Amino acid sequence: MHQDTELDRIDVQILRELAADGRLSWRDLAQRVGLSLTPTTRRVKRLEDEGFIRGYLAQLDEARLAGSMSVFVSVTLDKQSEKAIERFETEIALAPEVMSCFLMTGDSDYNLRVVVKDLEAYHQFLRRSLTRIPGVAHIKSSFALKAVLMRNAPPL
Rank of each mutant, 00 (worst) to 15 (best):
L65T: 06
A20H: 12
L24W: 01
Q59I: 15
I53M: 11
A63H: 11
S25G: 13
T90L: 07
S74A: 13
R32E: 12
L24N: 01
V71L: 04
E48L: 05
G67P: 10
Y56A: 05
G34V: 02
L77V: 00
Q3Y: 07
T105P: 04
V114S: 06
E6K: 15
D78M: 03
I53A: 09
R54P: 10
Y110W: 03
A93G: 02
E50I: 08
D8Y: 01
A63I: 11
L47V: 04
K117F: 01
Q80E: 07
L94D: 02
E62W: 09
P39R: 03
V75R: 00
A30Y: 06
I14H: 11
V33D: 08
F102G: 00
I92V: 09
D107K: 12
L60K: 04
L103S: 12
T76W: 04
G51E: 08
L47K: 01
R113V: 04
F52W: 15
L18V: 07
L112T: 03
V44E: 13
A20N: 14
T41H: 11
R23D: 14
H2S: 14
R43E: 11
C101F: 01
E86P: 00
K117L: 10
R43T: 08
A63N: 12
D109V: 00
Q3G: 08
T105L: 12
L77G: 00
I10M: 03
R64T: 11
A20S: 14
Y56L: 05
L35K: 07
G34Y: 07
D49T: 10
L15S: 05
I85T: 10
C101E: 06
G67Q: 13
G51P: 11
A84S: 11
G22A: 15
